[in-house]
Design a binder for these strands. Structure first.
Lengths: 241, 241
DNA sequence: CTTGACTCTTACGTTACGTTATACTTTAGT
DNA sequence: ACTAAAGTATAACGTAACGTAAGAGTCAAG
């Protein structure tokens, strides 16, 4: 298929497809004689994936990073995307509530507090950030970013050990028993020393590992790709608990 | 309230508030001695409005234009926003369906067409554009943009007359009987000579008049503010039919 | 074989802020 | 009253994800 057709089917502009080619996000083969971009069905599926991520406000850079990761698994990605979309729908519903209350407020039927006026407006661009901040406590998140500043040395070492153990096996299947056992240690560690994570919010935390650079960078210090491995393992863990 | 507090309550950054001040979208009073921005409760409500529009992907320029219009009515705006949010939720639901089908497709349970892969992805940034395009037919929309090219001169004149009549009364209340009678002529004209509009899609068309520059500019040639007047009148008309 | 519709690359423009940098103000603690 | 910390101001450059326009080659229908 040529570019216009792809644009029409998918609803994005030709320029957008050019752009995605430029940044290496979606680079179709080029007809050797004309130089035209030729998109295959597989390219279309990739585009669909990209658009799903984009709809969830992932920056293109992150999308590229995630999708070109060696552990990338389309099915898992789709399941994550579904979760995130559901979150987004919740936010939308909150906004609708807020708007309805505001209408009542305007009509004088109901009196709204300032805080209520902004319920549903989560502009962190990351559906899990707020949640994670609440759980880790604001400092903790900021410190995790700066390499977990104020833990006791013993705790810090215990944590590092878990990371190192995970880093060693980061090439196996995140769904395998071995990976799941290892990630369970992480789950238990967090539950013991930080806050109680439900399996669901543990999944959410895992998603942040790939979404949020502050996490990705820190974790990947123990081995490149560890964040994405842990994220996948945590997602799987959440499904089974 | 000082800027940080507003930022915290509303969830936007301080920089964003600075920016909105810079472009004249939300300019609070400044403390005469310190030079600090002081936000009132009214400013907060304005901010809420801005954020609603922003959540609906209105560009800031448009938001400013709409909100500073002399006909601007907060209650009407809220009702429009509610409608648009509901539209957006529909889209989200479609996307969720698409994702679920894609998962089935990946698992091999179900075979998906290329078109199906992108259902729910409407990236026109304007929930009504697609709809309007379908109704007017693609050419018509593009021609409306270029001043309605290929109508018969008679029809063109009839249309212009309706515009002129509306322009003359554009300062009265869009909800008044007089305005509603005038807008009904427009409704009937469209239904006779173009496509059948349901009251709902007539509302949608009206929303485009303020959202989409191609419409705004053309319509406002008959008098500044006509587009916004018609939009409000059409919205009201839709509610009563 | 000629158009009109596509396509290519190049390159500058735009929107909505993020991110320093530097300097003044306010507030909380001693 | 004094000082550090936190908040605020302006200024200015940076960035992300395309839009838009220009100039030139390519393809498909009549």
């Amino acid at each position: 298929m040529k570019i216009k057709e792809v644009a029409t089917i998918s609803g994005v502009s030709v320029r957008t497809l050019h752009h995605y080619d430029e940044i290496g996000l979606l680079s179709p083969k080029k007809s050797s004689d004309s130089g035209y971009r030729i998109y295959t069905d597989h390219d279309l599926s990739t585009l669909q994936q990209i658009l799903f991520f984009r709809a969830l406000d992932f920056p293109l850079k992150k999308i590229k990073e995630i999708m070109s990761d060696s552990h990338y698994n389309q099915l898992e990605a789709l399941e994550m995307q579904e979760k995130l979309l559901l979150k987004q729908r919740q936010k939308l519903d909150e906004m609708l509530e807020t708007i309805q209350k505001t209408i009542q407020n305007e009509k004088g039927v109901y009196q709204m507090s300032n805080n209520e006026k902004f319920k549903g407006f989560d502009f962190s661009h990351n559906p899990y950030e707020k949640e994670a901040r609440q759980r880790w406590g604001d400092q903790k998140v900021d410190e995790a970013k700066q390499n977990a500043g104020n833990m006791t040395p013993g705790l810090q070492e215990e944590m590092n050990q878990i990371y190192r153990d995970l880093a060693e096996i980061r090439d196996i299947d995140p769904k395998s028993d071995q990976a799941q056992t290892a990630i369970q240690k992480w789950y238990e560690f967090l539950n013991q020393h930080f806050t109680t994570y439900s399996p669901e919010s543990f999944q959410g935390l895992g998603m942040m590992y790939v979404q949020d650079d502050r996490f990705t960078k820190n974790i990947d210090q123990f081995g490149e790709g560890l964040a994405s491995f842990m994220s996948a393992a945590m997602f799987e863990f959440g499904k089974n608990h």
